[in-house]
C-alpha cells in the first residue's frame, strides 16, 4: 500500500512533471494567465493522462517495441479528441480560452513521457496511480502559477476583482512574468524538498534501461527481460 501511495505522490512532489522533470512547460507558460483556464487545462490533461496510462499499460504486452511511439500517439490522440469534443460541446468558453493548447495535449511531453517511461513497463493499477499523480502535479503547478499571475497581473481571481483597477502589475501576466513565476515555483518546490543537511537531487527521467545503469535509484526495475543485454558497437 505504501508503495502505491509513493507512486501517486511522486508525481506531485519528487518527480513533479513540470518543475522537476521539466516536461510540458509550454502549456504551463501559455495557459497560466487565468485560473479558470489553468484549472480546465489541468483537469483535461489529468483525464487524458490517466486514461492513456491505463490503456497503454493494458496493451503493453501486445504493442511491438519497434512501433510503440505511433501506438502511444494513437491511444493518446483518441482521448484528446474525446476531451476536445466534450469541452467544445459543454464548455465553449473554456474551449476559447485554451485554444490550440487543447488539441496539442496529443504531443504534450508529459503524456508521451509517462507512456514511454512508466505505463509501458508497469501494471494497470500502478499506471493509473502514476497518471493521476502526474496529472494532479501538473494541475497544482499550473493553477498555483495562475493564481499568482492573475492576482498580481490582472487583479482578479476567477474574474472576481480583488485588487482595485489601476494597481495591477501587468508584466506578471505577460510572457516575462510567466517565466519568472515558473522559476520561482521551481525554486520553491526544490527549497521545500531540501531536507536538513541533505540536498535534494532531482532525478530526471531515465530511459528505463536499468540493466546497464549504475545508479541505485528507487524505481529500479530488475525483472525486465532483455534489459541486461549490452549492445556491442563495432
Amino acid at each position: 500500500m505504501k508503495e502505491k501511495l509513493k507512486i501517486f505522490t511522486n508525481g506531485i512532489f519528487k518527480e513533479n512533471p513540470v518543475l522537476i522533470l521539466l516536461l510540458g512547460c509550454c502549456s504551463v507558460l501559455a495557459i497560466s494567465v487565468t485560473v479558470s483556464g489553468a484549472l480546465g487545462m489541468g483537469l483535461a490533461l489529468t483525464f487524458v493522462l490517466v486514461c492513456s496510462n491505463v490503456v497503454i499499460s493494458l496493451l503493453r504486452k501486445i504493442i511491438p517495441d519497434k512501433v510503440r511511439i505511433p501506438c502511444f500517439i494513437v491511444v493518446i490522440a483518441t482521448f484528446v479528441t474525446l476531451v476536445q469534443m466534450i469541452v467544445e460541446a459543454f464548455l465553449p468558453d473554456l474551449n476559447n480560452a485554451l485554444g490550440v493548447f487543447l488539441p496539442l495535449i496529443v504531443v504534450n511531453c508529459i503524456v508521451l513521457g509517462r507512456a514511454e517511461m512508466f505505463a509501458s513497463k508497469h501494471g494497470v493499477v500502478d499506471s493509473f496511480l502514476d497518471g493521476l499523480g502526474m496529472g494532479l502535479g501538473y494541475t497544482f503547478v499550473i493553477v498555483g502559477i495562475a493564481v499568482i499571475r492573475e492576482l498580481i497581473g490582472n487583479g482578479t481571481i476567477f474574474d472576481q476583482r480583488i485588487i482595485p483597477e489601476g494597481y495591477q502589475i501587468g508584466i506578471i501576466s505577460q510572457t516575462p512574468g510567466g517565466f519568472m513565476m515558473f522559476g520561482f515555483a521551481m525554486a520553491l518546490l526544490i527549497y521545500c524538498l531540501n531536507k536538513k543537511g541533505k540536498k535534494f537531487e532531482p532525478r530526471i527521467g531515465c530511459d528505463g534501461k536499468c540493466g546497464s545503469c549504475t545508479a541505485n535509484c528507487e524505481s529500479r526495475i530488475t525483472d525486465l527481460p532483455g534489459q541486461d543485454e549490452t549492445v556491442e558497437v563495432k
Binding site: 495591477q168 502589475i169 501587468g170 508584466i171 506578471i172 505577460q174 516575462p176
Partner: peptide, 8 residues
C-alpha cells in the same frame, strides 16, 4: 523595463 511593460 518591468515598469514599462506593467504600466505602459
Amino acid at each position: 523595463l518591468v515598469m514599462m511593460f506593467s504600466f505602459p
